[in-house]
């Protein structure tokens, strides 16, 4: 009888495999996504503010909102999306093998990744950079005063390389204390094992709450690396690439034009400026050009909100000001190509 159970498992396996095979015949990602009725979105295994499961297991965050925006654009339903939590090692394979349709997992856009992995970055939804946190008691105001410091960081990440570059470039000595997990790094820093804790500035903000006395630590103003984070899609499917890119652009443009989830409904009945009319689909034929409904951007703004709304809901609670992620018109570098 045990053999029978095994056999049953085998049959079930073979059947699941064969159904999966049957699904794979569509050619474009959009066609495949429309056929299965949802978007499979790769996210992190838990990064506050970007992709994080809440108490009941619902995913929230800036990266998650981007996937929801694409779902709203394609299906008019921001819930038509499923999330696959991925480790840093798995993420590109999962995308390349078609297991996920979008990778929205705080992934830094670098030249190697863009050119060698068969992937395309569809834009930047967050400009991050590596920062350093020190106890205020240390009396340091600039990273250049850190000669001979003990530095806590994670192993095997670019942060480790960046900090080495920075100290070497400035002719300073330092002592690196690297740990596998973020929790261990924070615990070591909190117990006074090191003078400096370095990781991406968003990470510093997120981990700050785990310190015994959060207020007696400060983040130094130096940013020692560029980490443009953005959504990634497979190379060779330009339509899908465009959909993801313009879903992001629509959110940023909506903020620039002052259209929010609260007032987008009113644009239906009121006279609006031509650029707003193009955004919400009252003018032009922009949705059809993408292979979508003409109300694609309207649905994004209605259901997910514009970039500012998403940022304020997810990233602001971490204590991260907009900074460089403000609109270009507000002194930041967020700049979306116009819809016209």
């Amino acid at each position: 009888m045990k053999k029978l159970t095994l056999a049953a498992l085998g049959v079930a396996g073979a059947m699941i495999a064969s159904t999966a095979m049957a699904d794979g015949h569509g050619n474009s990602t959009l066609a495949q996504v429309k056929e299965k009725g949802f978007i499979q979105c790769g996210v992190s295994q838990g990064l506050p503010g970007f992709s994080n499961a809440d108490d009941s297991g619902n995913w929230t965050g800036l990266d998650v909102d981007l996937c929801r925006a694409v779902a709203a654009a394609v299906f008019g339903d921001s819930d038509a999306v499923k999330f696959t939590p991925l480790s840093a090692k798995q993420r590109f394979t999962a995308l390349a093998s078609g297991e996920i349709d979008i990778l929205s997992r705080n992934t830094t856009w670098t030249m190697t990744r863009d050119t060698q992995l068969g992937l395309n970055f569809a834009g930047v939804n967050y400009y991050d950079g590596q920062g350093m946190m020190v106890p205020t008691a240390l009396g340091v105001t600039s990273a250049l005063e850190l000669d001979g410091a003990n530095i806590c960081t994670n192993t095997g990440t670019t942060t480790e390389l960046n900090i080495t570059d920075f100290f070497r470039a400035n002719g300073m000595s330092f002592n690196l204390v690297a740990f596998e997990k973020a929790d261990e790094v924070v615990a070591a820093y909190d117990s006074g094992r090191c003078d400096v804790y370095t990781t991406d500035r968003s990470g510093l903000a997120a981990q700050r709450g785990k310190l015994t006395a959060p207020d007696s630590h400060m983040v130094l103003s130096e940013i020692i690396s560029k980490e443009p984070l953005g959504p990634v899609v497979r190379q060779g499917d330009d339509q899908w690439f465009n959909i993801v890119r313009w879903s992001l652009n629509a959110m940023i443009n909506a903020e620039e034009l002052g259209i929010t989830s609260a007032n987008v409904n009113a644009t239906e009945f009121n006279d609006v400026s031509p650029s707003v009319a193009r955004l919400v689909g009252k003018e032009g034929n922009f949705g059809a050009e993408l292979g979508l409904d003409n109300k694609w951007a309207y649905n994004i703004i209605r259901q997910v909100g514009n970039y500012a709304e998403s940022y304020e809901a997810n990233v602001t609670p971490l204590g991260l000001a907009r900074g460089v992620n403000a609109l270009w018109s507000d002194g930041g570098i967020l700049y979306a190509a116009p819809i016209r």
């Binding site: 838990g46 506050p48 994080n52 499961a53 108490d55 939590p85 929790d183």
Partner: peptide
């Protein structure tokens, strides 16, 4: 571990 990452409880 994923629950630990939740900033609302950090």
């Amino acid at each position: 571990q994923s629950a630990i990452a939740d900033a609302a409880w950090s």
